[in-house]
């Protein structure tokens, strides 16, 4: 997002000299990108945040003192007072209005966010790639019809699209994932198609065609692998969007499930009624969402620069 110019004045490390081992002629695009990624402080910060987030999410059963839906502190809360950070022994981050342990819920919330993010991004990615690949391979009227629909869907703001889809699917957690994923389909479709079009006029495609390879083989073996860079970048950025949008859909009452579910968006939603007496209930999950989104955004932007150094000059 931020390294728009890679001049030495930026304080960023200069690109490796041609003689260094990593910079040897013949290094693959991916190795080259990995080298650039490792030298980008923002990318490292993003990777550390994402790494911690994934670690907490995966280890939630070990780390969290209580189960996500447990209400161990039910006896401690009254309608007018909710114990805050450090006010009751055994609950370091306090309790919520249901009597749930906030620390445990934040940890389980990481897991919920990771699952929502991964499933919805995978859904958007696969759907978008299928449509984009079909349009990019067959061209002609197939391309025209698919892209027309994609354009129409892109004229509806993303969150609104997700909300409309979720409203149709009903109020369940899986509906939220499908809705967020589906709202990303047009973005991935357009992205993949345009990269594929750019790739298909390159020399190696011409060479493959001259060798007599079929359309399908060229697409699968040559064009698609070379079009993956922008898709991976977009996928990482979509993980950030998915975490934020899932919270937004929860906030609008579309999340489904039980109210005490350990999910950051849900925790924020209920916290708004207690903003005056227990603001930490809003701040803690809100900060978790923001940090997670920040991690994926930093990593995504660093990947963009690593995979396509020229784009940094935009």
């Amino acid at each position: 997002m931020c390294n728009d110019r890679s001049s030495p004045a930026s304080g960023a490390p200069a690109p490796a000299a041609p003689g260094t081992p990593e910079g040897d002629a013949g290094t693959s695009l991916w190795r080259d990108a990995w080298r650039r990624l490792r030298r980008n402080p923002q990318g490292i910060a993003g990777a550390v945040i994402v790494g911690l987030f994934v670690l907490v999410a995966v280890l939630a059963p070990v780390l969290a003192p209580y189960a996500g839906t447990a209400l161990p502190g039910r006896g401690e809360i009254t309608p007018t007072s909710i114990p805050g950070i450090g006010e009751v022994p055994g609950f370091p981050l306090g309790l919520d209005r249901f009597g749930g342990d906030v620390l445990s819920k934040l940890i389980w919330g990481a897991q919920a966010s990771l699952i929502i993010g991964l499933v919805s991004t995978a859904f958007g990615l696969i759907g978008g790639m299928l449509l984009g690949a079909i349009a990019g391979t067959f061209r002609g009227w197939v391309d025209a019809v698919i892209m027309r629909v994609v354009d129409i869907l892109l004229s509806v703001p993303n969150l609104l699209l997700a909300v409309s889809i979720a409203a149709v699917l009903g109020q369940t957690p899986s509906a939220v994932m499908i809705a967020i994923g589906a709202s990303q389909v047009p973005i991935f479709a357009r992205l993949l198609r345009s990269t594929m079009l750019a790739q298909s006029s390159s020399d190696y495609v011409l060479a493959a065609r001259t060798l007599g390879l079929g359309k399908g083989a060229i697409t699968v073996n040559h064009v698609l692998p070379n079009s993956m860079g922008p898709v991976i970048v977009q996928g990482t950025l979509t993980l950030a969007t998915a975490v934020i949008e899932a919270a937004a859909l929860s906030f609008l009452g579309l999340g489904g499930g039980r109210p005490e579910t350990a999910e950051w968006g849900r925790m924020l939603t209920y916290a708004q009624n207690e903003l005056a007496i227990a603001p930490q209930l809003a701040f803690l999950p809100g900060i978790c969402i923001a940090i997670t989104a920040l991690g994926f955004t930093l990593l995504g932007e660093a990947l963009r620069e690593a995979l396509d150094p020229r784009s940094g000059a935009r």
Binding site: L268, L275, G286, A290, A293
Partner: peptide
């Protein structure tokens, strides 16, 4: 600022401002 603007959820920022 341009990083925070896109990573802090709008309604969370609204909560903070309101509080």
């Amino acid at each position: 600022v341009s990083l925070l603007g896109v990573t802090v959820p709008v309604f969370f920022l609204a909560f903070i401002l309101k509080w």
